[in-house]
């Protein structure tokens, strides 16, 4: 998901850089508030940890392999603010040391993977926790959030590429979101397994259990709300506005096997089809997304059931468990 240089136009690169800069500064300010001396080594080590954990591949369907992103995991363990800095550091090192992700695109990459993921991951987690009680609820929430944050991040990535005019939204969105709905399953499983293991052996390592940091906890919801607003501003607005050539692209999705650009040039904007087409595309996408989310939630609950023995559930507060 690392966007290379050359794929973003100036306006997108600048906009995302500004967003990232303010996001990271905000996180730095929050982290500096208390006991920063103690947090710095922890954040540095956590960044090295994420970097190394991302090097471990896990098998995805049909012989390909994916790797962990780790943002939700770190957010649940260290809190959203530290997680933003951890993930940003990982991306900066990947960019400067390995050219993995572009220099000009660094702002966009930080925004997608170091701000959107931990903030949405943690925000959604705090939103879900009151409804999902006990250890089983925690694991369900963790798995589902991890999945959502990866998918959301990929949607932002697609949006930036489309906004830059590099690809069209109607191609990039289903392609990126679709692939990451699959990759997100791996992320969800690993994140759930790790958090489940840590919350039984070393519960004090979880952010929500660490007394000293708890005062920040309520911010999570606010953060999530803000993110949704920003998300809508970025995505729904351009989507609603006449997208430069959304129609042609939608056509080529239908005939995806015909990769030759000549065919996708059937550009006469058939105005009669415009409305039904967009709406059916949007409906189909929304439906697919909804189904995907439901399936992911079901799988998360199933995973939580497998991972938490009934006995440990009883000790917590069982009645509301899914």
């Amino acid at each position: 998901m690392h966007i290379p240089d050359g794929f973003l136009d100036p306006k997108t690169a600048i906009a995302t850089s500004v967003l990232s800069f303010s996001g990271v500064s905000w996180a730095l300010r929050e982290v500096k508030q208390r006991d920063v001396q103690r947090k710095i080594p922890l954040i540095g080590l956590a960044a090295a940890f994420v970097f190394v954990a991302q090097m471990i591949n896990f098998p995805v369907a049909s012989g390909t392999s994916g790797h962990l992103l780790g943002a939700t995991m770190v957010a649940v363990l260290l809190g959203p603010y530290s997680a933003i800095i951890v993930m940003s550091s990982v991306l900066i090192v990947q960019c400067l040391l390995f050219a993995d992700g572009g220099v000009i695109a660094l702002g966009a990459n930080i925004f997608n993977m170091a701000i959107v993921t931990p903030v949405s991951g943690y925000g959604l987690y705090t939103l879900l926790r009151p409804f999902l009680k006990g250890e089983r609820g925690r694991i369900t929430a963790v798995a589902f959030t991890a999945w959502c944050s990866v998918v959301l991040s990929s949607i932002f990535c697609a949006g930036e590429l489309a906004w830059s005019g590099t690809v069209s939204w109607n191609t990039a969105f289903p392609a990126m979101a679709g692939i990451h709905m699959l990759i997100g399953i791996g992320e969800a499983i690993i994140t759930a397994l790790v958090i489940s293991a840590l919350s039984t052996t070393r519960p004090e390592l979880l952010y929500e259990n660490s007394q000293s940091l708890s005062e920040h906890r309520s911010h999570g919801v606010l953060v999530y709300g803000m993110l949704v607003i920003v998300g809508i501003a970025i995505f729904v607005l351009p989507f609603a506005s006449p997208w430069p050539d959304g129609l042609e692209k939608a056509a080529s999705i239908l005939g995806f096997e015909e990769k030759t650009p000549a065919h996708s040039l059937i550009s006469p904007p058939m105005s009669g089809y415009r409305i039904p087409w967009i709406s059916s595309f949007a409906t189909a996408t929304a439906l697919a997304g909804l189904i995907g989310a439901f399936v992911a939630f079901g799988l998360s609950a199933l995973l939580a059931r497998i991972l938490t023995p009934a006995s440990s559930q009883k000790n917590m507060d069982a009645p509301h468990a899914p």
Binding site: V36, A48, S89, V90, I92, V93
Partner: peptide, 11 residues
């Protein structure tokens, strides 16, 4: 702060 973290991370 970021530079300290990056140095620690790299190390």
């Amino acid at each position: 702060l970021i530079l300290t973290i990056l140095a620690l991370m790299y190390r």
